[in-house]
Simulated scan of single mutants.
Amino acid sequence: MPLLLLKVNRLSAVFWDVDGTLADTEMDGHRPAFNLAFKELDLPLVWNEALYNRLLTIPGGLRRVKFHAEACGVHLSQEQLEQVRDRKCVHYLERVRQGHVHLRPGVKRLLQELSRAGVQQWIVTSSGSASVMALLEQIKMQIPSFDGVVTSDEVASGKPAPDGYLLALERSGANSAASLAVEDSAAGLSAARAAGLRCLLTPSPWDVHALRDSGDEAAAVLDHLGEPGQPATVLSGPSCQEGAVTLKYLEFLLSVPDR
């Protein structure tokens, strides 16, 4: 559909997922941090990359731990789960400080463009507050400040439930029709759509479900947000002529009739 035939809507807010969307946090950040926590606490659990790929279909780190432990016949008390969480956060922060976690292509560029344009930017994540704040502390010199953060600690149910997005919409005062979510997973896409938000999907390499199940639910699906010399590939949705997701492209997504 030609852009000139559409009335382009002004974008008021963008809600960002963190793990796999803002940054490549999973394989070289969270996974080894969990393994170090398991070892310290003498738990018979080890997550290699293939196993972690499968576990990532479960939103939320402690939910993954509980699920895998039970599958291995290991019962963990709430106290043990909290110990895993606390030790994992320590190791994750150290991994971030050591430079193992990097922003995904185009994230810094788009964050800066949206900030200059006065668009609200919020984080909505299934991760806990400690992990999110650890990452933000380390990358704060690279990116603009976010207007707010909603983590799994603040809602009854994480993604794919819409609770986090609904809370972010309430706090931000943003109109869902003039807002958009950026996600990397099938669970995140479902959460955004259930909250009445259009969603730009940049799937993580490990989430095959995000590509397989996105169908008509995502406003667009791209391999990443695009950088000069590293153009994004549109996998579904309107073409991205600049080879990079921009404010103009996001506002165009708001203007295209919802599928």
Rank of each mutant, 00 (worst) to 15 (best):
G106K: 00
A220N: 02
R87F: 08
F146S: 09
R104I: 07
A194K: 02
V149E: 08
V84S: 02
C89A: 15
E40A: 12
P2R: 15
E82W: 08
S127P: 08
L3C: 13
P231A: 02
H100Y: 12
L11W: 02
D42F: 08
L136S: 10
V256G: 06
A37Y: 04
I143E: 14
V234S: 00
D163S: 03
L103H: 08
C199R: 02
A232I: 01
R87T: 09
R259F: 06
A187H: 08
R109E: 14
A186E: 14
H75M: 12
V101G: 07
L51A: 06
V245G: 00
L114Q: 06
H30R: 07
L45S: 09
G164Y: 02
G106Q: 03
A191V: 01
A37H: 03
V149W: 05
S127D: 05
G61H: 03
N9A: 12
I58Y: 03
A117F: 09
W47H: 07
A168I: 03
E70A: 11
P160N: 08
A71C: 05
R97F: 11
N48Y: 07
K248Q: 13
S129W: 09
A23R: 07
A134K: 11
A192D: 00
D258Q: 12
S157G: 13
L201W: 03
T125V: 08
R63Y: 09
P160H: 04
D28M: 12
S190M: 09
A37P: 06
L62E: 05
N175I: 04
A177H: 11
F34K: 07
V8P: 08
Y92F: 14
G128H: 15
F146K: 05
K159L: 10
L189S: 00
Q120N: 10
W16E: 04
T21I: 04
S126R: 06
E70D: 12
S152C: 15
P238D: 10
L4C: 15
E70L: 11
T25G: 02
Q112L: 15
V84K: 01
Q138T: 12
S185L: 03
Q98E: 15
L250W: 00
I143A: 11
V119W: 01
R171W: 05
W16F: 10
L110I: 06
L43R: 02
Y165K: 07
D17I: 01
L114Y: 02
R97E: 14
T21Y: 05
A232N: 01
G128D: 10
R259S: 13
D42Q: 15
G226H: 00
V90N: 03
R10P: 13
R97A: 11
L197Y: 02
N9M: 13
L81S: 04
Y165M: 10
R259M: 11
H224C: 07
P105W: 03
S77T: 08
F34R: 08
L167Q: 14
D216H: 11
P162M: 10
S12W: 03
N53G: 12
L103W: 09
T57D: 13
L36Y: 11
V245W: 00
A178M: 10
K140H: 15
L56D: 09
S176P: 07
Q121L: 07
M1A: 14
E154C: 10
Q121R: 12
T151F: 04
L111H: 03
G158F: 04
D163C: 02
N48L: 06
P203Y: 00
S190G: 04
G196F: 03
K108I: 11
L36E: 15
L211P: 09
P2E: 15
S145Y: 14
K248T: 14
L4W: 15
S157R: 14
V119S: 05
G226C: 01
